[in-house]
Design a protein around this nucleic acid. Structure first.
Lengths: 350, 350
DNA sequence: GCTTAGCACTCTGGAAGCGAGAGTGCCAGG
DNA sequence: CCTGGCACTCTCGCTTCCAGAGTGCTAAGC
C-alpha cells in the first residue's frame, strides 16, 4: 500500500494529468507542493512509482502518465466523492431532471444521459429496466373498435405498457374481462418472463379442455399480446465529446469507437455485465471500472455507473463511459445523484 | 441548358468524383470515353464547364471537382433513379423492415434510419409524424386502481397513444365513459391541436355551469391528459459513417458536425422545413436538396428525403443527410422505397 | 542518508527544404 | 476543331534540423 509522500506525489500527478492531459514532469509537481521538494527529489519518487507500476512514460524524455493501476488506487484510496460538492452540477442535474412542463417532454432517461454527458464531457448512457425483469401487477384488457384489443400491463415499479393487437375475430368485452381476471388471479406477482412461460405451458397442456376463456386467451397469445421483452431501451448522449479527447486523436480508432457506440445492443450488455446491483465494490453508490475488459474499441475505457432501483427491485442503469482520464470525484457524484433521481422518478410513476 | 458533349463530360466527371472522391483530371475522362477524345480536348471542355460554374479546382494543378450547381444539374437532368435498380439494396430494405418476430423488436422507424445509413454510407434520419398533426379518431378513458386513469387516444393513421394520469380524487368509470363520449361526439375528426385549444376554450367559457361531466373533464385537463405534442420522435443512425469521408477530414469541423447531430431538435426542424408534402421538385418521390442553407456545420450538405404519408395525410419523414458527394440514384431509390414501406406500415397499424 | 544542483543525454514536434508526380494552360500543326 | 508537346504550378511525402522539455546520474551539501 502506498503511503506518505509517494502517495501524495502520485495523487498530484494524477490530478495534474486529469486536468491537462499532458504527461506531467517532475518540475510541475515540485512547484505545486508547499514543502518545496526539488524536482530532482520528485524525480526519484516518480522513478519508484514507475517501478511499482503506477506511472509510465510515453517515451524516454516526456513526463509521466498514470497507469490504470494508478487510477484504481486513486479511486479506491484517495478520491472522496462523498465530500465532493459541486453545487453547479447538482443544480444542473436537478433542473434538467425535474418533470417540468415547460421543457420538451423527452423521457427522463433521455435527459439523464444528456446531463451526464454534459457534466462529464464523456459519453452518458442510460439503460431502462428490461421488461423481462418486470413483475406483473395488473393486467387489463379493453375491447376497441375493429376487433382490436388494448392490452394494458401494469408492472410493479415501472411505467405501465400498453399494446394494441388486432384480432381476426371479435372477442366481447365481458370475455376479455374474464380473461383478465384469470390472468390477474393467477399471475400477479410473477415475473413477466415466468408468466409468459407458464401461460404457454398451460395453453399447451390444457389444449383439450378449451373453454371459452382459454380459447380467447389462446387467440390473444397467438398475437403475442404480452409486451415484448425486447431490446432494452438505451439512451446515449455525448459521443461528440470524445472527439475533444487528445488520447483519442487517432481517427481510425475514433471511427471504430463511434461505430461501436451505435451498436446499442453491445452497450447494453456492457452495462448489465459491469454494473450489478449486488456490487460491493461501490464508491458512494457508483461502481467504477477502470480498464474495461471488452472488445477493442472500448477496451481500456473507464465506466462509472450506478443501478437505479425502484422499491420493487427493478433496476435501470445510468453510467458514464470514456477514457480513464476522468474527473472521478465529480463524475461519481453526478452519476450517483442522477441514479437517485431517476430511481425516485420510476417509483413515482408506478 | 447543357447539351451534348459538355453534358456528357460533366456527367462523367461527377460520376468519377462520386466514386473516388479525388479531383478528376482530363486524362481520366478521356480514357473512359469510347469516342477517344484526347485529354487536351477534354481539358478545353472542362475549362468551359468551369467558366459556367459547374466545376472548380481545389488548386491550380489538381483535377476538377463538381460544384453544387453541377450536382443539382445532375440530379435534375441526368440521374434516372426510377430506372436504377439494385436488387441487393431493395432486398436488404425489405428484409430489415419486415415486421419479423425473430428480430429485435425495435420500432420500424429505428430500423429505417439504420438501413438508410447502411446503404447510403451517410446519416439516416427518420422523423415520426408529429402528434400535433394527428387527427383524432377515438378517445377512451379507463379507470385503473389508485385513482389512476388510462387515456387512450387513437389518431387516424397512426399508432394509438396511451397515457396514464394519476388523479387527486377518484373519477368513477361511468363518469369517465360520459366524458369520453362527449369528447368523441364533439372532437372526432379534429386535429389534436385544434381539439386541445377548443377544449381549453370551452372549459374557460362554461366555467359557470360546471356539471359533473365538465368537472371531470376539467380535472383531467389540469393533469394534461392529452398526449403531449412534444418533441417529435427522431431516429438517427450512421453518424460514424461521416468519419470515413475525406471531405470531412478536418477534426474541428467533424466535431461540430457530431454535436449538431446530437441536437435532435434542430434536425427535426431541418427535415420539416426542407421536406414538405407539397413539394413538386421531386425526383421519384424523393426530394433532393443540395447545399443546405442551414447553420454552419451542415451548411453545404445534401439532403435526400421523402415524406411518408398515411391514407389520412399524416406525414413522417425519412431522409439521408451527408456531404453532396453521394450516389444519388442509389440513395434516391432507397429513400423512396423506405418511405413507401414505412408509410404502408403506419397505415396498417392504424 | 536524504536532498539538491548541475550536466549530458534523449526524444518529440514543428519548420524548412527538396523532389516526384499529377495536372493544367497554351501554342502550333494537322 | 482536334491533338501532341511543353513549360509551369501546386501538393504531398520525405528528410533534415533545431529548440524545448524532461530525464537519469553524479557529486556535493545538510
Amino acid at each position: 500500500m502506498l503511503e506518505g509522500r509517494n502517495r501524495e506525489v502520485l495523487a498530484a500527478t494524477i490530478r495534474s494529468f486529469i486536468l491537462t492531459g499532458e504527461p506531467v514532469g517532475s518540475r510541475t509537481i515540485s512547484r505545486k507542493r508547499r514543502d518545496n521538494l526539488s524536482a530532482a527529489t520528485i524525480r526519484n519518487i516518480m522513478a519508484d512509482l514507475e517501478a511499482a507500476g503506477y506511472l509510465e512514460q510515453p517515451h524516454t524524455s516526456a513526463g509521466r502518465v498514470p497507469t490504470e493501476k494508478a487510477y484504481r488506487f486513486y479511486v479506491a484510496h484517495v478520491a472522496r466523492p462523498e465530500r465532493y460538492q459541486n453545487s453547479n452540477d447538482a443544480e444542473l442535474i436537478r433542473r434538467q431532471l425535474r418533470g417540468d412542463e415547460s421543457r420538451p417532454p423527452q423521457t427522463i432517461l433521455e435527459r439523464a444521459s444528456h446531463v451526464l454527458a454534459t457534466i462529464s464531457r464523456n459519453v452518458g448512457v442510460v439503460v431502462a429496466p428490461t421488461a423481462a425483469d418486470l413483475v406483473l401487477h395488473h393486467i387489463q384488457l379493453v375491447a376497441l373498435s375493429d376487433n382490436r384489443v388494448l392490452v394494458l400491463v401494469e408492472p410493479r415499479g415501472a411505467p405501465a405498457r400498453s399494446r394494441m393487437v388486432r384480432m381476426d375475430e371479435e372477442i366481447p368485452q365481458d370475455e376479455l374481462g374474464r380473461i383478465a381476471n384469470y390472468l390477474n388471479q393467477n399471475f400477479t406477482g410473477w415475473r413477466l418472463e415466468a408468466a409468459r412461460a407458464e401461460i404457454a405451458r398451460r395453453l399447451e397442456e390444457e389444449r383439450a379442455l378449451y373453454d371459452a376463456l382459454l380459447r380467447g386467451l389462446a387467440l390473444l397469445w397467438r398475437k403475442g399480446f404480452l409486451p415484448p421483452e425486447g431490446a432494452a431501451e438505451i439512451y446515449l448522449d455525448g459521443a461528440s465529446n470524445l472527439m475533444d479527447r487528445p488520447e483519442l486523436a487517432d481517427p481510425g480508432m475514433l471511427r471504430e469507437l463511434l461505430r461501436t457506440l451505435e451498436e446499442k445492443q453491445r452497450l447494453v450488455e456492457l452495462l448489465l455485465r459491469y454494473i450489478q446491483t449486488e456490487d460491493v465494490q461501490q464508491t458512494l453508490q457508483a461502481r467504477v471500472v477502470i480498464g474495461l475488459d471488452a472488445d477493442p474499441p472500448v477496451s481500456g475505457f473507464a465506466l462509472i455507473g450506478a443501478v437505479c432501483t425502484t422499491e420493487q427491485g427493478l433496476a435501470g442503469r445510468v453510467a458514464v463511459l470514456g477514457p480513464p482520464r476522468m474527473a472521478y470525484e465529480r463524475v461519481i457524484s453526478a452519476v450517483a445523484q442522477v441514479a437517485r433521481i431517476v430511481g425516485d422518478a420510476m417509483n413515482e410513476k408506478s
